[in-house]
Each structure stands twice: as structure tokens, then as C-alpha cells.
Design a protein around this nucleic acid. Sequence first.
DNA 1: TGATTTTACGAAAACGTTTTCGGCTCGTTA
DNA 2: TAACGAGCCGAAAACGTTTTCGTAAAATCA
Lengths: 340, 340
Amino acid sequence: MAQKLTLKKIAQDLKVSISTVSKALRDSYEISEETRKKIQEYAKQYNYKPNSIALSLKNQKTKKIGIIIPEIVHHFFATVISGVEHVANEKGYQVIICLSGESFDKEVVNMEMLANGSIDGFILSLSKETMSKQDFHHLREVINQGMPIVMFDRVADDIPGDKIIIDDVTAASEATDFLMRKAKKNVGILSTVDYVNVGRLRTQGYSEALMKRGVEVNQDLILKIEDIDHCDELIEKFIDNNPSLDGIVAVNELFAVTASKILTRKGKRIPDDVAIVAFTDGMLSKYSNPSLTTIGQNGYEMGGIAAAKLIDRLEQDQKDEERYETVIVKTSLIERESTP
Amino acid sequence: MAQKLTLKKIAQDLKVSISTVSKALRDSYEISEETRKKIQEYAKQYNYKPNSIALSLKNQKTKKIGIIIPEIVHHFFATVISGVEHVANEKGYQVIICLSGESFDKEVVNMEMLANGSIDGFILSLSKETMSKQDFHHLREVINQGMPIVMFDRVADDIPGDKIIIDDVTAASEATDFLMRKAKKNVGILSTVDYVNVGRLRTQGYSEALMKRGVEVNQDLILKIEDIDHCDELIEKFIDNNPSLDGIVAVNELFAVTASKILTRKGKRIPDDVAIVAFTDGMLSKYSNPSLTTIGQNGYEMGGIAAAKLIDRLEQDQKDEERYETVIVKTSLIERESTP
DNA sequence: TGATTTTACGAAAACGTTTTCGGCTCGTTA
DNA sequence: TAACGAGCCGAAAACGTTTTCGTAAAATCA
């Protein structure tokens, strides 16, 4: 149980001053060859590592970034974190994770916990509750203290900070058009309630695609689901109410795979009778039966970009460059068995 | 861009000393009612929050725990983190995450990065490479410095620290027996190579279950897969080579769902012709078609237990209680469509 | 030899806390 | 009135760094 080695202890053991040790370890010209060697060897032998807390305090930089997301048990968020972690580590940063569990209060508490010096900057995706409340005072507070924020996926438009998003409208439009090109005449959409940005935007893209081809938007073909845990009944009713339905755009994997299952049970063939395109290229799409054609959101890439942007901002010292950027990450349509 | 408020600034503004401010904010009896009120109100108005880095340095405690796992894009690990985070936050701790990506070197580097004062203790699940090398010097080093370690799932038996595992042998045995009770006569297992603990133990449990019922273990019915990315071909060959196969135990979801797909394609009916039980109760099992009967590893619970154990150890000051515990978390068999 | 520069090191401040201890100003008591 | 005890507050140390500045001794130069 060797006590953790510090400069002070090395100094005592070698009968020199703390400053000498510090300088020797940083190869300062002020220290003689002889003393330097001695100190460096001693440090190496006993595996000295500078205490990062002390460094943080001195430098007023923690080399840590905080990330707050609604859930981690969610493939998309997990990939984003993976991307963040990779880039951050590469640049010598560590990642602290907090989960809001889709709760506004937890999001606020977590931000306060992290903003008291624990980290240098934030990456976050807002909770559903925050989106519906449109209350962003906690973000403003943090920003006022000079801490940069990068938001991804679920962003607050009028908050000063970089944003990494996908073009939901275009992506949904392309997905819808893709189905129509496959000769599907009655394409519906399984979406979420409108206060969730992605739900609203994807529904919009869906509508735009229809209109571009001169197809009238039929509200019966739009299902907005609030409670994801009980989507089964809603989707089943939706399917029963729309017997002519032959194409589905789903804003997430779960809706898609649920629909797929219900359809199969009802004797419909996929993709011949009904084709399906899902957002989020996760495990479910890849391995479900039939596998699903999806719109990949490239979460890993998003995470990487978010981390790179944040760290850039942290390491450029002139703050005058106050232009915030919104990066739109390309989506990719991955064709699988659920479309012809 | 208000500068972050410190004790010093409050002291200057209110023309008192730093110590007075500190004491006033901690409700010390040494400070007069009047001064205390004044300081507390000022602090509240300008939203003073003590700097956590300074506190860490002073107290020699960071109130942070580090967690190193192979991958985060993996349902089981994600649930564990979720459990860790929940319990940790409840007790005022934050969670720093590092990913080893199944690489020994990255695991070592990450541990060194965290062990220099960033955290108070570790929770980890070892990388595959570490397991195959059986090189645990990095763990020993950290422990020697007095930092407690809690391992889960992939643990190193002879390292002093708490361990949270499931009883793989029993779980696999129960799964196998479950299939046999369903009148399956030729049950095989899709496993991993032996240096992965869980693979070895689950294979052992499988064999024990057979032997208990007087069935001879047939090596042809045991498939050990090394490269998870190309499991398709191996599994297909395995199925072709064993035409009488009517039950499968898979050590993870992916193997199970892959087998399920191949079997379906070959015209076999699940569960009538072949029944399947998978380890890991994740998205795939729940939503694949047919849904899979699984052995839930209760990752959320494991994470919670790991966090609680670690924090307990951190907060008990007398180190004499050096008895390390191995907690065996109960698995749960969740019946779905892939078994009769 | 005396003056000046170079070499090599140490003292101290700073980052933001908490806490111990010392001390000043009252009012109370002998 | 002198001594003493509250009551109230500030100075300083400590946590582990880095860095600026000061300075003694040694080396160089005139």
C-alpha cells in the first residue's frame, strides 16, 4: 500500500526542493544534467504520475468533458458516446457521463453538478421533458459562466452553441420517396408527438415528399405516438384502420419492428405487401427478421464531430470567434430485406 | 460572461476575509447572525457553487468513480452503466467512462489515466485481450496504491477486489435443462472460445445438465466461435452438420438471432423444430421475430450492486476490513416465442 | 584581484477550498 | 479596576502542481 508519490516526497527523499523536482521532470535547462538524471530515474522507478486534480486546479482546466444524454440503453446514444469517447481520448480528454432519464429536473441537477469545475465543456442531447417545456435556463446559466456547449440530435435552436444534427426533413423525405419509387401508393408514418423535434421534422419531410409527387397528405396515415412502451396497441389499430397501407416510414427502430411483427402475424408479407423504412440503424434493424432498411444517423460520427468541435473551442483562447456552427451530418440509407 | 464566483471574490466584495465567507456558508457558530445572513444572501443571489476541483484536492477525494468496459454499444454493458450511474448519483458520485475496445493496451492506458487522482475507485469488466493474456499487472498496481476495484462479469479471480458475477454454470445448466424438459433430445450450444470466462463456464453448465440426465456430451454439438463478426458461416455449417439438432443454447443474443434466421431460411420452424434459449436479455431477444427466450443477466442490478459495494468501501475508513466479496447475481429465465 | 556573468537551485505565490489557531473587542465578574 | 471569558473575525497552513523571481556559488573576464 505504497502511498501515492508526490513531488514533495521525491524532494524529501532526494534532499532537494520541490521546485527542483518539478523542473527536473519537465527537462528544464535550469537543472544540472546530474540532478536531472537522478530525479528522473527516481521518478521512473517509483512510477511517479503527476496528480491530475492539482493540475486541474492550477491550470483551471480539467481536460474532461461532460456529456448528458437521456438514456444510455439506446443504441443511437451509445454510438454517439462511443464516438465522443474516441475523439476525446485521442486529444487527451476524459468523458464524464450523466443520464437525465428524459427528466428535466435530473438534467438540471446534472448540469449543476458538472458545472462547478468538474469539466471544461458540455456535450448534450436534451431530455424529452426539456424539449416539451422549452425551458433552457440551465443551459444559459452554464454558457454565461463561459462554458461552451455542443448539442446534438435534440437541440435548442436559440441557445448559443454548436449544434450537430441530421437533416431530419430531408432524410424522411428521401425515405418516403424511396418507398414511392418502389411503387408504394399508400405510405404512412409512425412518428412521435410534435414537441419531440425529430418527430415533427420527420413528419414534415414525409409530407413534403408526398406533396412533391402530387399525393395528398392523408392524416389517417400519420400516427403520433407518445408513450413508447405501449406502442403495440396503437400501431395495431393503425394498421387495421388502414387496410390499403403498403409502405411505412418509422421514426425509430422499435416502431418499425413492432409494425413488422404485427403485419407478419396478420399474414402480410414484407416487403411485398408492406415495405418498411426505419430511422436509426441499430441492432434491431440489422438482425430482426426480416432485416430492416434503415436511415443510419451515423451516431459515431456525430459524437466524434461534437467532441472535436467542443475541444477546438476549448483550446482556441481568443473568444472573439463567437460564431456558432450547426453541422448537418449526412444520413445513409441502408437497404435490407424490408424493402423491395 | 460573469466570471465564476469564488470565496475570494465574495470576500473582496463584502470586505470580509475568505475564512469568514467559508464559515458563514457552512453555518459556523463563529460567525454572527448578521454577517452570516449577508454572506449567504449574496452567495445565493450570485449563485455561488464551491469549486469541486479545489474540494477534491483538499479532501483527497474526488467523489468520482471510473468505469472501464470493453464496449458501450452493447446492451448488457449499457444496462450495467445505467445501474452504476443511478446508484452513484444517488450517493453523490459521478461516473467517468472509458472504453477499452477489447484491447489490453487501451485498458492499461485508461487505467493509468484515471489512477492519477481523477477518481476514487474503479469498476471494470476486463477486455477479451486481457482475459486471454491473463496479465493483470495494471490492476495490481492500482490496488497497491490503495485504490479499490470492483470487477463485474469478466473478472480476474486472483485479484483482490470485490466481484459481481452471475453463476454462469448454473444458468447455462438451467437453460439446457429447460430445453430438455421441453422434450428436446439434441441440444447444442453456440459458445465462445474458452479464454472468455463466460464461454467456458456456460459450456461447462451445458455439459453438466446433459450429464445429469445421463446424456452423453457430443462435441459436434458444441460450437466455439472466436470471431463474432463472421459467426454466420460457422453457425450455418454447424446447423448443416447437425440435422437432428432440435435445441440451441446461445451464449449471446447475436448467435441466437443469427441461428434463428438461418433456421427459418432453411424452412425449420421455431420453436417446434428447433427451440432456442439465449443469454443476455436485450433488444434483439425482445423484438426479433420470433422473440427469444432468454436468460436475463440483470445488468442494471449488477451495476447498482457494483457501485454500492465500491462506494461502501470508499467510505468505510478502517481498511482492516479487507475481506473481499463475490456477489452472485441471480439470472432470470424469460420465456418468449423461441421455446415451446 | 576585482567585477561580472553564468549555473544551479530554492523560496514563494497561485489555483479554491477548509480548518486550526491566534487575537481583538466587548461585557462581565471578582 | 484588573482579569477573564465570550463573541467574532482574520491569518495561515494544507492539498499538489507550475512558474517567477531571487540568490549563492562558481566561472569567466578584464
